[in-house]
Amino acid sequence: MIDEAKYAAVYSILMLGLIVEILIAIDRSALGAFADAGILAIAVLQALFIFMVYMHGRYGPRPVAVFAVISLLTVLPLFIALLYSVVMPHHGSLP
């Protein structure tokens, strides 16, 4: 019964997150410049709940969580470099 309640609660949170995301997208004025960040933050939280509750099952999550974080950190430099490649001025013509 405890498991059922836990899974149902997480499902409710995911649904709530989805509704809030759509509401923000429809009416961005409420959050203004933070609308996109708000939507992405909700997505991150949803993924976190799925990872913590739906995915790790009965096993200890610690080493898995550590490796998952390392996996995310691995692609982080790529994100930063891709963003920088676009938003920062290019160094101009080459000799």
Binding site: A81, Y84, S85, M88, L94
Partner: peptide, 8 residues
């Protein structure tokens, strides 16, 4: 030499 920013 691809033209990416100086900071990169």
């Amino acid at each position: 030499m691809t033209g990416i920013s100086q900071s990169l």
